[in-house]
Design a protein around this nucleic acid. Structure first.
Lengths: 248, 248
DNA sequence: TTCGATTTGTTCGTATGTATT
DNA sequence: TAATACATACGAACAAATCGA
């Protein structure tokens, strides 16, 4: 019991919170990678020198944040960015008829730029840092519905090239996860109405003065570290943004 | 122990889920009103014939849904629609500078109408039901930022008049709660970009062709019963909609 | 101010049920 | 069938916060 208390640097908070941080640190360190099985409750309780119940309590929060997934009879897994998960937790556009369909991306542009002060601030990185800037057009049911403009710190994505980006097998966040060990676990979005830049309006097949939904996203990885900025321009003729702070 | 199993009509689900439903039923029935203290864990465990731990488990979900609030040393309370709670869980507009300020409402219109099929469907009530329709203008910092159009089933709000509505002391949801025993516990919103009706555009001091954020809300009370429809037209020049599916 | 009663929060332990392999 | 892992349920003890005597 005392070993667990001594192991943590900080203290005076509940034991389960300390255990939770240790587990998070192991996730960051890559000890358990996405899709993998983490040790069982009993093993973890031995490792940290606490009871099974305390381990469960520590895992609960990580499960509710969708960082871990538990399956009865099988074990506890590190969540992966499957299409399903992305659709439900990181993609909020649905058809006006209620339909949910994953979008198909087309790469419009890829370049490396020097970050503006505002962008570097939001990403909590040094000014003038180099950022990768990617632009995508997203289509649902064959029709282009929105355009994305993505900014990520180049230093966190070593070896990223246009080809790597274009040849990814699944979603963008799955690419971050599988190739760069960066796990997006939460997003925060600010929405406003406005106009799309003329070139985007053209792609969306709307007039340049047509109202579009502008979404500014910050994506976070473990411990609330911002890792991606993204602005989307959405043609809401056929789709709407669903904000549902709902229970499980 | 068997008494709890016999008490519930349905079964084959976890005991804590059954207890949770019973507690919810007591909340619906008004046994414990908003702001009031509910019985302690020990009393509840005696009442339902289950262990303290099972009661805790049953309360956990209700707490995470913000239906109940627990305070160490004091007890467990039924959540009320205080300004703070409304600001964080039912009001998602923030200033572009990040400021959060509660809006000031001005009543624009109040009438009773016959519900459209679409509205009655969404409210899951009989067609042609009578609805109360309220329109408000909402200002932040003295400037009108958005206009609301509210629809609620008249039958659930007996005695509601324009005067009652206008003379309310606090928020609209606090009025529902204190006067009609209707507790809004969750909302679901769909957002799109579009134009405001000309009369609303005038109030918002924007051109009729200016893009505005259109928010369609369904508000739910216990057991996911829809109780209010609301459409808002927002001038996003100074404010944005914050969608943050964040942890506590 | 102190003290005791009450209530929730944390931690431990045990037993049994259920799903998976 | 057996072993493993999570899910549920019970109980006990102590800590921490609150409140009133």
């Amino acid at each position: 019991m005392s070993s667990a208390l001594l192991a943590g640097t900080a203290n005076s908070n509940p034991l389960y919170a300390e255990i939770q941080q240790q587990i998070t640190r192991s996730l960051i360190g890559g000890e358990w990678k996405p899709g993998e099985l983490i040790p069982s409750e009993i093993e973890l309780s031995r490792r940290f020198g606490v009871s099974k119940g305390t381990v469960r309590r520590a895992l609960e929060d990580l499960v509710s944040e969708k960082i871990l997934v538990r399956r009865q009879g099988r074990g506890t897994f590190v969540a992966t960015h499957t299409r399903d998960r992305v659709m439900y937790h990181f993609f909020h556009l649905i058809g006006r008829d209620g339909s949910r369909e994953p979008p198909v991306a087309t790469l419009l542009g890829y370049r490396v730029i020097k970050g503006t002060d505002e962008a570097c601030n939001k990403l909590r990185i040094e000014r003038q840092s180099r950022l990768v800037n990617v632009q995508n057009s997203l289509a649902v049911g064959g029709k282009e519905v929105f355009v994305d403009d993505i900014l990520i710190p180049r230093s966190f994505f070593p070896g990223l090239t246009q080809k790597v980006f274009r040849d990814r097998e699944s979603t963008i966040y799955a690419l971050y996860q599988s190739r760069f060990n960066i796990n997006v676990v939460r997003i925060s979005e600010e929405l406003a109405a406005g106009h799309a830049p003329p070139e985007h309006a053209k792609r969306l097949a709307i007039h340049r003065s047509a109202p579009v939904l502008i979404i500014d996203r910050i994506a976070y990885t473990y411990q609330d570290k911002p890792i991606e900025l993204r602005r989307s321009w959405v043609n809401t003729a056929s789709h709407v943004y669903l904000s549902d702070l709902w229970k499980s």
